[in-house]
Design a protein around this nucleic acid. Structure first.
Lengths: 363, 363
DNA sequence: CTGAAAGCGCTTACAG
DNA sequence: CTGAAAGCGCTTACAG
């Protein structure tokens, strides 16, 4: 429904209300309501008359009024860390929303996409007509979670830092990242570039947050097994798009030219592979590439991408299920962590002979 | 916000209302409202007291109540032809929603995804708290558009049959499909399979609708240039997923084995290419494949997909812009048609020597 | 079987 | 500068 007085189809016509229908059918507004919601309570004749009047006037009950009265919206909000366009550009979110959508479809909820308001995810809350929020990638400091909780609105945190007691769903980012590094190290790679996701401005003041911090920790852990530290890898941080992965890879290959690129998202890895091909380099012959996410696309590509699988849709599904429970006031199962797994495919291989860009064909 | 009494964070705590805040701060409810919406109207001391009380109680204004009173929701609905999970599985929609999202972000609207209710797109309308709808792929018969219009809710039709007077956005499907066929015919293909999107049950009773009907017409037109008709091609209709494209291609190659597959979506085409590779067939050496949409993925793949480009994001953007105009009661610019263009890339080539599966390597 | 009344939580002219 | 009152459009006990 639309609350606005101005219609699109027939300009100038105010949307009819139950009062209009009641008048047209010569009954009370309650009778109109019953005709729609509890047909058994009125005689068939009256009901037919009301429904006919409604059809005639183009009446449908106002959704907002109904929600206010019902005290529920039957709609779930997804509080996004970026604007809608950015999110939709990222296949990761399409997959995540698929999972959330499965639950919405099954439970009869509709799905509201809520981007930050004036750069704040929390500020968007009072403008969303929903029964609760799936909060994506909130860069939590305790304050924000506390604030969420104080408002008494059901919510589930995804890809954040687990805040004690707050229902949340994560994957084992640390383990996934560690496995990816170890894989590359085992293949003999020592000059590794980490193609990471731009953590935004807050990183300077508060350090890494959420999944990114766990992945960084996993990388450090993996490196330490080979006696290396984060200082021994080249770290690039870019927005999470194929184009940026492409661009950054061009830049890094023009410089210290690693033998392996460990990307923290498949989208970035895909851009990296393209850039390497464009430079006339073979993947994995000259440079190995690993991704993170295991998007469906990762195995469509040639070479098929070696990447860290995370159950994205399942994460969305679980988050939505926890949220629906919370909305219904059922018990909470606070902190859930789903597993990751390294998928070794074709984009990673042994490091080229040590010491050398020698054999490498540069266009 | 959430209207529900049951919070997720602190169970049992009723959400505070402006009345609670007013009581705590010792002022009237109007004062509370002013503190949030028109701070200049009250003294700084009072305002601070109110805001402090609100913070203390975890109060945020109820979005639904606010919408009801304002007569607008600042949110746009997308009326989907399928459930949310299905839609999110289709990269076409991700791209379309990207376009819609750009406008929402810019104009400060939030985006509600509304799947059909009991198989009816129209039935979902009275449950959506939005100012208007982008209606995707409605299988219009005049009745439904008429009903939409009578309800006085702003709407814009996308990928439907243009209904006179109803604002709508389409692409030139017919031309796109015709170009794809002509391209294959020019390359010498005569045994062509059309891998089409399952039109759903209504097709039996009312024939093809919307973009699908236009694409079919374009194909027929293209074929006629070579003295062929629809009877001379093999038509397969499957749900629009990569997996179904894969499956159908396996089936069709086991049968009459065309030299070209014209898919009516990139997702299907991608599945087709995979299936052909799996069968040990070369693309385009043994079989040519063309797609429709020109998803970003189409040019990531090897071979890069020959496909019909349609400006998906632009379509979403334009639809949302028209809708926002309608919501604001501005003038309508009814029927907009965006262009398509054949992108000839690497998945299509000359038909193999006529007459023969002879040279083909079958695993 | 039907109607008058209260109330969901907010905002906003209107008085003071 | 602040408060009491009406109203957004609906639903639902409660009387009749």
């Amino acid at each position: 429904m639309a609350t606005g007085g101005r219609p699109g189809g027939e300009p100038g016509k105010r949307r009819p209300t139950s009062k209009d229908v009641a008048a047209a059918a010569g009954v009370s507004r309650s009778a109109v309501s019953f005709a729609f919601n509890d047909p058994a309570r009125i005689s068939e004749a009256t009901r037919e008359r009301i429904l006919a009047a409604a059809r005639e006037l183009g009446y449908v009950p106002n959704a907002v009024a109904r929600m206010l009265q019902a005290g529920q919206t039957k709609s779930l909000g997804v509080l996004l860390p970026q604007n809608v366009a950015k999110v939709m550009e990222n296949p990761y979110y399409a997959r995540f929303l698929l999972g959330v959508g499965q639950v919405c479809d099954r439970e009869g909820f509709t799905l509201l996409l809520t981007p930050p308001l004036r750069d704040s995810m929390l500020k968007a809350i009072p403008y969303a007509a929903v029964d609760g929020f799936v909060v994506c990638g909130l860069e939590t400091d305790r304050g924000e979670v506390e604030e969420l909780r104080r408002r008494g609105i059901p919510f589930v945190l995804v890809d954040s830092d687990a805040a004690e007691g707050a229902p949340s769903v994560d994957v084992d980012d640390r383990n996934g990242a560690r496995e990816a590094v170890e894989h590359l190290l085992q293949l003999g790679h020592r000059r590794i570039a980490v193609l990471s996701i731009d953590p935004g401005p807050t990183v300077a003041t508060v350090g890494y947050r959420g999944s990114l911090s766990r992945r960084m920790a996993g990388i450090a852990e993996g490196l330490s097994g080979a006696g290396m530290t984060m200082n021994d890898v080249e770290l690039l941080e870019v927005p999470c798009t194929r184009a940026e992965g492409y661009r950054a890879t061009g830049a890094v290959m023009a410089g210290r030219a690693p033998t392996a690129i460990l990307a923290l998202s498949d989208v970035l890895a895909i851009g990296a592979v393209d850039a390497l091909h464009e430079l006339g380099l073979r993947v994995p012959g000259d440079v190995s590439v690993t991704g993170f996410d295991d998007l469906p696309e990762a195995s469509w590509l040639r070479p098929r991408l070696t990447t860290v699988h995370q159950p994205i849709a399942a994460k969305g599904r679980l988050a939505a299920e926890l949220l629906v429970s919370a909305v219904r006031g059922e018990d909470q199962h606070p902190h859930q962590v789903l597993g990751t797994a390294l998928m070794v495919r074709d984009s990673s291989g042994r490091a080229p002979a040590p010491g050398g860009t020698g054999t490498r064909t540069r266009r």
